[in-house]
Amino acid sequence: MSTTAIQPVPSGRRLKRFMADRPLIPLIILLVILVVVLQILRPGIVNERWLANTVKFAIPLAILAGCQTMTMLTGGIDLSVGTVATMSAFIMATQVVNHDPAVAILIALVPAVLIGLVNGIGVGVFRVHPLIMTLGTSLIGTGCLQVYQRTVIASGAKIPPFLAWLGTGLTYGVPNALLLFVPIAVLIVFTLNRTGFGRLLYAVGDNEGAARLSGVRYWQVITALYVISSVLAGITGLLYIGLIKAPSLSLAEPLVLPSVAAAVIGGTSIFGGRGGYTGTIIGALILTVLTTLLTILQMPEGARRILFGLIVLFVTAAYLRIIEDR
């Protein structure tokens, strides 16, 4: 490719370089294209209500994808987010029958902290591969939840009106969930870009040995990271139950793989050290719009999954090409 350096830069190449400098642009373009396709297929669907709905469903996905983004920055992944979210949602919905909502929410977040702690210690201290560790804890979590379900089978479940308001409500056409999401997103972006902890995450993911030699306490960073990730997943569960309004033992499971996909599409490297949360948010929006698109096309569930997988693959490959700028 060295010959092209002498010749005048072709326009395609310049475009690529421009996109490499601003990785968000191709994502936003893709999002706009998807929305336009949606509008062409079903004229008039894109209105305020649709927008609010899309944002509402994208938010839980975006928070979970935030967990993935942060863990991926260190070269990890957190596959227990689905189980943690389901657990906190289910426990909250059953505990709120006997307790004050605030107490129930606190109780519900205890398992989230515990699972995060186990993940963090497993990955940080014992150096288990994060994929295995989080898959394992999610298996344990699901088992615990099934046992727990037996003990509360008689008491029933309900959703506190506050969470339903937060999950589904609109104020002047704007989803209330943004009240929760905007601070979380700002906090994540701020933490990643402006604080020491955020830099440590990038440092550990980029070159663990170097980070360790420069005095980073690896296990402390990783443990803190996985606890944060789990707590965020727990909060997502509380929000998601307000949106879905039906507690079940597989509530948030379908969000796990899309959350990984959203972070990957958003440009976070699964090998660590590169990426950011803004891309992930757009990735979550893209996936949500895509889901709507496929639903409208009335694709059978199977074909939907196939297309979903292919698009994830295609977008990642295309994105990699643009970023690499060869």
């Binding site: 992944i77 994929l131 990984v260 090998f271 199977g302 196939i306 997988g309 994830v312 693959l313 990642t316």
Partner: peptide, 27 residues
């Protein structure tokens, strides 16, 4: 796919997981 796209194997097989699962549901 892994060789040609140079996408990390974990992502490629995640995508094929979706695809194969979908195909199984179609069959």
């Amino acid at each position: 796919l892994i060789v040609v796209t140079r996408v990390p194997d974990i992502v490629v097989t995640l995508a094929t997981l979706f695809v194969l699962q979908g195909a199984a549901l179609l069959v």
